[in-house]
Amino acid sequence: MEMSDLRKVDPVKHEQKRGEILGAAIRCFIRDGFRGASTTDICTEAGISPGHLYHYFPSKEAIIEAMIDLGLARSAERFEKILAAPDVIEALLVDIEETSLRFRPAQILNLDGLAEAARNPEFAKIIERHTAAVRAMWADFLRRAQDQGRVDSGLDPDATANILIALIDGSRAMPIRNPKLDIGRNVEHLRTMLVRFLRPPETESAARKPRPQGTSRPLKLVRKR
């Protein structure tokens, strides 16, 4: 067989098909969970045969890994967008509201992923890798924001990253724990918490403090002409 007879793989179409399969897999994971969704289910959802699937992903674990890499890439884009905003804390709050408090797929996948990691050592390794990457992104984001004077420089970026990851996990659990959750009201309280936690101390707060009673403002010297 001549080389010209071999079917060439179009990289653009290949990536497009991988994206379609990932989309189908995510729908299956949301519907049936990471444990419940099989490769057969994913193939049915994607409209392909099992043999065709293995041209793109060798296993369900490979699909999950690719899904995580896609999520990390999108997270990196969001961090850049937040850093470019006039107010990083406000932009961060908006991101948490949109991607956690109001985004049901993230809520389901996040909680189901943690549950599966608790009982499946191999899946736990995937979650550990994902968490390490997310933690590194948070820490880098915080350091850059500190360098810009927009986040308290006294905070340890790595420890703060852990706290914020826990906050994200908690935010995604809230609407599931309470379907009648008043998201707007909770966002306002979350804003207060983030501002108090992350915002740099006011450098001129001492100058704005009220003077004790009985004290007077220093007199200005007026030069006589």
Rank of each mutant, 00 (worst) to 15 (best):
A132S: 10
A132I: 02
A132C: 05
A133W: 00
V134A: 11
V134K: 12
R135K: 13
R135L: 11
R135Y: 11
A136P: 07
M137S: 14
M137C: 14
W138R: 03
W138F: 13
W138I: 02
W138C: 03
W138A: 01
D140K: 14
D140E: 15
D140R: 12
F141S: 01
L142H: 00
L142V: 05
R143Q: 03
R143Y: 01
R144Y: 04
R144G: 02
R144D: 00
R144I: 04
R144C: 02
R144F: 04
Q146H: 00
Q146R: 00
Q146T: 01
Q146S: 01
D147R: 07
D147F: 06
Q148R: 08
G149F: 09
G149K: 09
R150S: 14
R150M: 12
D152C: 10
D152T: 10
D152S: 14
S153R: 13
S153K: 12
S153F: 07
G154W: 06
G154K: 11
G154Q: 10
L155V: 13
L155H: 10
D156I: 14
D156K: 07
P157L: 11
P157T: 08
P157C: 12
P157Y: 05
D158A: 08
D158M: 08
D158F: 06
D158G: 06
A159T: 14
A159I: 14
A159G: 14
A161W: 02
N162G: 07
N162S: 10
I163G: 09
I163R: 15
I163E: 15
I163S: 12
L164R: 01
L164Q: 01
I165G: 03
I165R: 05
I165K: 04
I165E: 15
A166E: 14
A166F: 08
L167S: 09
L167Y: 10
L167V: 09
L167H: 10
L167I: 10
I168C: 03
I168D: 02
D169V: 05
G170K: 06
G170P: 04
S171L: 08
R172A: 00
A173T: 10
A173L: 15
M174Q: 07
M174I: 04
M174D: 07
M174Y: 03
P175Y: 05
I176S: 06
R177G: 15
R177L: 13
